[in-house]
Design a protein around this nucleic acid. Sequence first.
DNA 1: TCTGGGGTCCTAGGACCC
DNA 2: TCTGGGGTCCTAGGACCC
Length: 454
Amino acid sequence: MSASTNRPISISSFPSPILHIDCDAFFASVEQALHPELKGKPVITGKERGIVACASYEAKVLGVKRPMRLWEAQKICPQLICLTSDYETYSLISKRMFEIIRRFTPTLEEYSIDEAFAELSGLRRLHRTGYAEIAWRIKQAVQKELGFTVSVGLSASKTLAKIASKEKKPDGFFVLRASELHLFLPKVALERVCGFGPNTVALLEKQGIRNVWDYVSRPEAWARHLLGKIGGELWHELRGEAVYPIVTREKEDYASISKTKTFTPPSSEKDFVRAQLVRNLESAFIKMRRHKLRAKRLGVFLREQDFHSSGIEADFDRSTSSTLDAVRLAGELFERVFRPGTLYRLTGVVLSGMEADRTVQYDLFDDVPKIESMKRIDKVLDGINELYGKHALHLGTSLWLGKHQQSGLLFLKRPETSGQHVGGRGDLPERKLQLLPGETFRQRLGIPVWAVRI
DNA sequence: TCTGGGGTCCTAGGACCC
DNA sequence: TCTGGGGTCCTAGGACCC
């Protein structure tokens, strides 16, 4: 179908003008704005993870992409400047951007650290100009005050505005009127729709859908049947009928916290994989406690060499913020997921059912002294780890000790902190504790390890 | 895109209950 | 009793996003 034969979708041109603003290479741009000597140079962030988290346009031009491995990027581009991510600064700049946009319109959604949606309806009188001009002024204000470019799209729905902002990236400005959709959408590839991932695109192509116009030309019922709820919603959004509202209230808390880690080479060694999992569990709990939350539910998953993953979830007896509390359940779930002989490349934990860790409601059967003691242990643990680095003090289970794996012990791997005392109640049989004196670990691992009985 | 890490939401099918 | 129909809740997995 050629564009000229398409009939316009008959709706007013801007029922609710929606702006999407998207920073260009955000992390790298912030670095360049803050350190002018980096301007015009190929810069990436993500050094601490060994991957390219964000590449400046100068780097992109030279073929550096996300998430390329660092050594690969440096091979392509020897003059590449690699920086450690500084999320605190990025968040600060992000907040400033949102504040600038809020000077123009209060209806703002902080969609991600470098993206926002805003509603402009009703603002023409206030600003004494048209929607496109308001959008242009917002772009100019942000760029002037932050010192880097952003791309702006203006259209009739969030989905269309997002397509529009990508249209001329970087430093883009694009107004997509609903009255022009029949001319524009035939040129838009399916994968440009936020919500159409690789699988959906493949499915649509099998149905003979080759671009977004093809999609919106089919009946809504067809879209809903093929792709479910989201299929129907996007069908409307792409026709300029806004379905998704601008969510102005700030996201208050996490719905879930997860930690995953890939290890190479893949392993089928059960104790090793379990150690990786428990390490993730520790990290997730540290993060959760930092945000003063506790979780009701724990999920555990393993990813195989071929990227297939499987996992299960279960509830804790009561919601908890204590790592020690969670180790046993994590172990049980692990036993149910782990399949001998399978090569795994990643473990992950997901904490969900989050609530504020304030009011403690002990019920009749809770072991109150034990809960209190675990809370004290966590406090000491977090304190020491803050002082000496993450995982300086950690659970024995997250050390890989081959067949002599133990849980319920904490290990301190810095000799200088050996004087620290961790209080609490022991709940392991005495003989298990005696099996593994610190000296044994020291010999086995060749690093100073201090077992602390709990 | 042969693939890092942290999130959200949806759904099909099973369990369980009238 | 092997035979309905239907509702709700849960769960594992999928898909997608940044």
